[in-house]
Amino acid sequence: MPWSILSKGAGMTAAVVEEFADLVSQTVESRRKAGLKSAIYEAARLLGLTERRVRACLYREIRNVTAAEWLDVRARFASHLEAEARRHAAEADLLRARIEALRNEAA
């Protein structure tokens, strides 16, 4: 059953569509260093969407979202955030090790 802003309960539905578009947009923005076209491609691949669907979310042209699509994107986005957290933790560990090495050399 597709959720649409034209269906019954439009307040809740509009919020779901907006959250969906926000998750997709955040994914694009996190990958934007290489350029917008590349970021859209990577976000589509990561979230399991078409590039056109990602563009529709990015430019707020999206009209409806199925429950399955919404849940799938939320799960994939959560996995994306977990991977980013692991990457940042590894970078922090590396920086701590470099700082410690510099301190030991100076002593």
Score class of each variant (00 low, 15 high):
Val24Gly: 05
Ala21Gly: 08
Ala85Glu: 12
Cys57His: 02
Ala85Met: 10
Leu102Pro: 02
Glu91Thr: 07
Leu23Trp: 03
Glu105Ile: 11
Glu29Ile: 05
Leu81Ala: 14
Val24Ser: 07
Ala107Tyr: 07
Thr13Leu: 14
Glu29Phe: 04
Asp72His: 15
Asp22Phe: 04
Ala97Thr: 07
Ala92Met: 15
Asp22Val: 07
Glu61Thr: 05
Gly48Met: 09
Phe20Gln: 04
Glu84Lys: 10
Arg53Asp: 06
Asn104Gln: 14
Glu91Trp: 02
Asn64Thr: 11
Arg98Met: 14
Arg31Leu: 14
Gln26Met: 10
Ala83Trp: 00
Gly11His: 08
Ser7His: 13
Trp3His: 10
Leu81Ser: 04
Tyr41Gly: 02
Thr13Ser: 15
Ala75Gln: 09
Arg98Cys: 09
Tyr41Thr: 11
Asp93Phe: 01
Ala68Tyr: 05
Ala89Trp: 02
Gly48Arg: 05
Val28Glu: 01
Ala78His: 07
Glu42Thr: 05
Ala85Ile: 11
Asp22Thr: 15
Ala90Tyr: 04
Ser25Gly: 11
Gln26Gly: 09
Val54Phe: 02
Ala68Trp: 04
Ile40Lys: 08
Leu95Lys: 12
Glu91Ser: 09
Leu95Gly: 04
Ala75Asn: 09
Arg98Gln: 13
Ile5His: 12
Trp3Met: 13
Arg63Thr: 05
Leu36Ala: 04
Glu82Ala: 15
Glu84His: 06
Ser30Phe: 01
Arg31Asn: 10
